[in-house]
Design a protein around this nucleic acid. Structure first.
Lengths: 248, 248
DNA sequence: CCAAAAGTGTTAGACCTACACCCATGA
DNA sequence: TCATGGGTGTAGGTCTAACACTTTTGG
């Protein structure tokens, strides 16, 4: 059985062209039917989908998400939605909060539990997704027409991302496996919305001991090639357990 | 209509005898009927209540909370639950998160959105509550038999409280209007689970400019009487807007 | 050799930590 | 006058912020 009053949505942040992006979709009803629920379950919620302006109209965009089947675990289902729609597995995914204003969805009472994820758009190729045509990255300050309370939820998620990024080095999830310190700094500047001092930033980040020097360099750049670093996941896990103290 | 798959629960923390306490209840079905829903709505969810071990058995305790009526706003309803059950109004109440494991409630699929609140048990007299007989404070490391995933949720809420308290001076909500610096320090020590240096704590807290010297002192204590302070809400609000930087 | 971004050290001030004794009060 | 908790200052170390020039690379 589908819990019609409950949906699970994913706010997926990416970082591209020095901008924070968010992944939205315009799902066709057939896609929902095909990927997210059994045919039977789809029938139960058909009326809701048909009234949703992000479905079929071609104009409005919304978060990747769907209604929760009663036999599905909440956290697991968020992961499943991501996996099924984007092919992406094992990524940073956390619950943001439940949104439950009475009229947030005009045509029905739907409470949504929102998750947020951080991925690197270049690294996770959405062309591999079975529904790649329905997915699109948007810069967060240049959003298309969106449904319902999508804007408000993005703002909340951004606020959470800003808070999170100051105490946990989650920003690494938004970068490729190997990155330069300048890329890392730009990422932090964009998320925090302010300029950081290059020398101080490098000192701080290097003293944390979370960077692995790959001994590789950029190639084909018209200036001094920057060193490439990767992120030491094991040390990060250890620090988290000890109660990480990380501040940018 | 009652959304039977959704409940709203409040984890209410208090501070008493140098311990963190949590307020639990054992609601009688008649109380639920009387205070939280119309008779009609109660009938709709009767079967759920009858299977809940916190109702009627006298042995098990649970969070104050109930199922969400479809016409009620989520945040507002959490406030309303608190107001109706405890008589307490205008307090610090924030959403913790949604809990949605499949079998968290054995007899039915219920997802709960949990809020947490901080109050001072001495200041808010529960005898004023219309259901005071069903409410009781418990020390968090001396809990009674509790229903469902109450323990797990308390742990999550505590973790959030610890994180919150380091960056926002929310601890003040747990103290009386006028308090001594020693009381404040003990509160922080209990929440954070570690001893703090008295001189350093006082310096830090006084430099924040959030304390108002009431020019009053303790009376009837068998030692040097401590000065009483209160908390400057206006300056606090201003600091929050500017992006408070508060660390204990 | 030029343009463009990478990379690097020092200093002054703020903040943090550790630490021990005198003070005020009621019994 | 004693027991109890209230109240205070300093010094050393660490962290932070501000600041400008040289290096490497491809075109």
């Amino acid at each position: 059985m589908i819990l019609k009053n409950l949906s699970v949505d994913c706010v997926i942040f990416g970082f591209n062209n020095n901008k924070i992006n968010v992944l939205l979709w315009q799902a066709e009803p057939e896609l929902l039917e095909k990927f997210l629920t059994t045919k039977e379950e789809y029938e139960q919620t058909k009326d809701l989908f048909e009234k949703n302006p992000a479905l079929g109209s071609g104009n409005f965009w919304g978060f990747i998400g769907t209604h929760l089947p009663s036999e599905e675990d909440l956290d697991e289902y968020a992961k499943k939605i991501l996996q099924v729609t984007t092919g992406i597995d094992n990524i940073y995914l956390k619950q943001l909060q439940a949104f439950g204003a009475t009229h947030r969805v005009p045509h029905y009472r739907v409470l949504t539990v929102v998750y947020y994820a951080l991925i690197n758009p270049n690294y996770h190729d959405l062309k591999l997704s079975p529904i790649s045509k329905s997915l699109k990255w948007f810069e967060i300050d240049n959003l298309p027409k969106v449904i319902f309370d999508v804007k408000e939820i993005i703002q909340k998620a951004l606020k959470r991302l800003r808070a999170e990024v100051q105490y946990h080095p989650v920003g690494f999830h938004l970068l490729p496996d190997k990155f330069t310190l300048t890329e890392l700094q730009t990422l932090y500047e964009v998320i925090l919305g302010k300029k950081l001092d290059t020398r101080n930033f490098r000192k701080k980040i290097q003293n944390m001991g979370l960077l692995i020097d790959t001994n590789e360099k950029q190639t084909n750049v018209a200036h001094r090639a920057a060193k490439l670093y990767s992120f030491d996941v094991e040390i990060y896990q250890k620090l988290v357990e000890e109660g990480l103290n990380f501040r940018i």
